[in-house]
Design a protein around this nucleic acid. Structure first.
Lengths: 344, 344
DNA sequence: CTGTTAGCGCGTTCAC
DNA sequence: GTGAACGCGCTAACAG
């Protein structure tokens, strides 16, 4: 017999509260909210007055439950929102989803597979209308399960493994390859590689692009020049320093993401060498480092927008099982010099 | 007589589906889910098997509707997620909320009051358990309305106007003041100010700190040295250039946020002057610009975490009407030189 | 034009 | 131990 602890004005009013006060049935209020023309103007006006007086707001959750329609919520699972790349992606996703009346529930996994798993399960339990994810790992069984239960899944930046889903990728291979080719064209023969853990798809592809470019130039990839696993700029700087300290150090470095590029930049500046630098992912102030820098750039907003579009289409069409689509966002090679920049 | 368009395996199974297949009542399944000990072990085992077979997941939305408990969702309203400041804030919020079993629904307003308004209304309609917002404007009636309806509101970075709410602020005044004092101590007498629009609280406070520091040094604030309204680095650079082109240009610039600091940096480098630079908000690579730089730094993650804590407390205690709390996050003055950095 | 009945998926109360 | 009834807030279908 616990008394209701909420004060009378604490609880948000329900449709019934409005109905009683307006002296009509709940149905009539419901119709007014739906702008159903079959309500007498006078009645509708009275109901609207009461709605305003009470500050009534329809409970969208209850509504979606009744309608069997979706919740209007989309899960967005990223590895690290603090990375500008992912925040831009999130922004792109959000901008497109907003146009479709969808809101994004964001979740940060910190590259941790367990977090990702429980996050996805929670999103499914909350009955999101779809999920956009940047999977942390090749183990994507939780995402596959969600997809199997009829929740549309779109992957960003990394492809699905062992299940079918739409995805938006970056031209990892091509971008890495052309950046490396540029270094080769500049006469470099000893080119180092710095990248994130080799379990990540993007890292694998970018390494492949790098290695193929070298191979085409008749240069075998030198394992001693390849350092993988650095996630933060600090680790990256250390790895770069190790390469620069080699008896026969590389004369150029290619970095598979902006964490590594920034780390490498710091190492080069400290070492005082003239090592050439190229990297994947653009970043702010890349033009202001006072070092020539070749960057593989791409539009991460667009990556998000495209993911949003793919998902919105799935949701609208309810086409859970139609053919899977894959989009690849192109890359551009940008050269930042010691003064200004030139797109290429 | 429209047939159900969903295939049999499309829909997520309900508690009843589990009950039928396990040949028990819905109630028993419900009990198993709640780990109610009053279920025969054998029955429980059978139910659990079916749950696994069907991949059943409880509908959290329906559950929260029935329980009258919250939705477990929190609205997070920011002005620009692409700004690292806000993405870190979001991350901080999310990390704390996650510990309380809450998820954040994110919304980006792009500093647009109308978007903010509709966003907040939508969040309330979705029955979020609370809202954390970085309000775009002094007009916060929509937030006040939400609070009045019993939805806990916490403001970050800017204080509530015309209503009561918890908030987490940065020491805008003190930070700006000490940075300006530092420039004064270095001998500067003509110090320019670059800031965002004067409608924003943080901008007002930071200007005040700047002006008071000057006043204490017996220097009147010179209107010609004050440029407000720049939101992006491009505009900021132009404004800075205008100051540098003055017949008697300032010998130092203080910038009220990192957009303006970066813009000013570019202008100074282009002009080739030795203008001293100080700014609010730390940013990556601030140490690598090859220019002495004084930065008012603070922990934006912590700002988010504190906001999350305040909100979580409100939600847990249901203390919608207890006294309002205000936290101020301290700032630190950091000096980046042409080689390395020193905290101060 | 308006109200009544029924039920979305779930959980509480109270019987058996 | 288990189940039937009832209701959370809302709305489609069917009366009147």
């Amino acid at each position: 017999m616990m008394a209701d602890t909420r004060g009378p004005r604490d609880a948000q009013p329900t449709l019934r509260d409005v109905a009683e006060r307006a002296e009509v049935s709940a149905m009539t209020v419901s119709r007014v909210l739906r702008d159903d023309p079959k309500v007498a103007p006078a009645t509708a006006a009275r109901v609207r007055t009461v709605i305003a007086e009470l500050g009534y707001r329809r409970n969208e959750m209850a509504r979606s439950l009744r309608l069997g329609s979706g919740t209007g919520l989309v899960g967005l699972v990223v590895t690290n929102l603090a990375n500008p790349f992912y925040s831009r992606l999130a922004l792109g996703v959000d901008s497109v989803l907003a146009q479709h009346g969808l809101k994004s529930v964001i979740g940060n996994t910190g590259q941790d597979l367990d977090s990702e798993r429980s996050l996805v399960q929670d999103l499914v339990a909350r009955r999101v209308d779809g999920i956009i994810a940047v999977p942390a790992d090749a183990d994507q069984r939780h995402l596959a399960a969600a997809a199997a239960e009829g929740v549309p899944v779109v992957l960003a930046s990394r492809p699905p493994s062992d299940f079918a889903a739409d995805c938006v990728l970056v031209d990892d291979y091509g971008g890495a390859r052309s950046a490396t080719e540029r270094l080769l064209a500049a006469g470099h023969r000893r080119i180092g590689f710095l990248g994130s853990p080799p379990t990540v798809y993007t890292s694998i592809e970018r390494l492949r692009g790098y290695a193929d470019a070298l191979a085409d130039a008749g240069i075998g990839a030198e394992p001693a020049y390849i350092r993988q696993g650095q996630q933060q700029t600090g680790e990256a700087a250390r790895a770069a320093s190790e390469l620069l300290d080699l008896p026969e150090p590389p004369t150029a470095l290619f970095c598979s993401n902006n964490r590594n590029t920034i780390g490498a930049f710091r190492a080069i500046r400290r070492a005082g060498t003239t090592t050439a630098l190229a990297g994947f992912d653009d970043f702010e102030l890349a033009d202001a480092l006072g070092l020539p820098l070749t960057i593989v750039a791409y539009d991460s907003d667009e990556l998000g927008r495209e993911a949003g579009r793919l998902l919105a289409t799935r949701i609208r069409d309810g086409s859970v099982r139609s053919a899977t689509r894959r989009t690849v966002v192109p890359t551009t090679l940008v050269h930042y010099g010691t003064s200004g920049s030139t797109a290429h």
